[in-house]
Nucleic acid binder design. Structure first.
Ligand SMILES: [Mn+2]
Ligand SMILES: [Mn+2]
Ligand SMILES: [Mn+2]
Ligand SMILES: [Mn+2]
Lengths: 219, 219
DNA sequence: ATATAATGTTAGACTAATCTAATAAATTAA
DNA sequence: TTAATTTATTAGATTAGTCTAACATTATAT
């Protein structure tokens, strides 16, 4: 465990480097809303503590120790979100903010009890997988709704952002994790998608449809 | 809301000044496990922020703003403790440590939902009163078991410390909040007390009996 | 291939929270 | 009522996390 600030850096490094395995100072600075030199000095500290591997002007990579730490924090974040929804009855659009605070609570007991009460869940309220105590993540094939062919019938598995505004939008459209939908039409002009959910047609902008992840592959 | 550190100072000032209305730098330093000059400079900061009233070499007093802040933190601490016991099934001896962290979580929604789920409780798992959202505390007459006369029949209302070792001790003796007990004998020599709980005699040291609060007054 | 732009690093400063060492005030004991 | 002791304050240093300004490197565009 590092400090709260270190934990937030490690978590951001993890998510930003998921695709390519590395992340750049400028990307981190943007995400964490701090200036470049701030990131630079913190990265040097994280490197000294062996959470990241880094050489000047190169990309930043998490070490195994860093990955383990990141997954432990993400586990706490996602367990907390699910707990807030399932046990405390809050909405999926309002739990992320609270989980950002709860993820830094240091208590195995607290989190293992949550896990137990939730019956060892595999995914958070946004469909994101919950790592187990060893940092293992259950994987599932997911593709953006925006990449689906017309006529396809798919299930909503997850959303890739948990911003309140986006989730409020989905609430308004009546869409939830687990819904089965059919792709009716994809507009070439603006990339918007019309889907059918239990007899009702719903139109989604490209920006929305690329953040909804559905079952199956791209075909 | 101040910083986490400020919140901890305010909470300690509140509890240490409950009896006399003021607290001294040295008492705070001891409680918070920091050195005198550290407290001195923090008290000056809290005074600048109007959380305390203070003049050099005088006792430290919370302002109304400071009291309100203290009660808000205590409310969160005690709600969290009760929630951990009632909803999450943890033991009363292990919740204080977790609540020390949860009390700094900033979310009205989180705490009001807890309050609701617990049905607006009046006391935490250690019998301590829970302030309402306006900082009002339900009062109840309580006296230390050590001050009770032989022959008296009383109810355990609260414990005045929530150290794990003390609560483990009570668990071992089989004593809980709400128990009705009878004072059988008070030893003049060491102040130990023998009580009767459902036909069984239990001997408690003076140190233990002065931290068990029971119903009624001293007579 | 050189100039320009973008990105990253170093240097130096600031605030929050802590410390030790030195000094001052208040309290207690002689 | 002085002297000794305890308690409090000031001064100056340290670490974590941040900033701005200046400089260096790498990438991009002419
Ligand atoms: Mn989240
Ligand atoms: Mn989530
Ligand atoms: Mn407590
Ligand atoms: Mn308590």
């Amino acid at each position: 465990m590092g400090t709260l600030t270190e934990e937030n850096y490690i978590k951001s490094i993890y998510s930003l480097s998921l695709a390519t395995g590395e992340v750049f100072v400028s990307e981190l600075a943007k995400k964490l809303e701090v200036k470049l030199p701030t990131v630079n000095s913190m990265v040097k500290k994280l490197a000294a503590k062996k959470f990241v591997a880094y050489a000047p002007y190169q990309g930043i990579k998490l070490t195994d120790k860093g990955k383990k730490e990141a997954l432990a924090i993400i586990r706490k974040h996602r367990l907390a979100e699910l707990f807030l929804v399932k046990v405390m009855g809050l909405g999926w659009e309002e739990v992320h903010e609270i989980a950002e605070q709860l993820e830094h609570v240091n208590s195995e007991r607290f989190y293992n009890r949550m896990d137990e009460l939730l019956n060892y869940p595999k995914a958070d309220p946004h469909g994101e997988p919950i790592p187990d105590t060893h940092g293992k993540i259950p994987t599932e094939k997911r593709t953006p709704l925006s990449a689906q062919k017309e006529g396809k019938k798919v299930k909503i598995i997850a959303v890739s952002v948990d911003q309140k505004s986006f989730l409020d939008h989905l609430n308004a459209k009546g869409l939830q994790i687990g819904d089965t939908i059919m792709i009716v039409k994809r507009e070439l002009f603006d990339g918007s998608v019309t889907i059918l959910k239990s007899q009702k047609e719903i139109v989604l902008s490209h920006q929305v449809s690329e953040n909804i992840l559905v079952s199956g592959d791209e075909t």
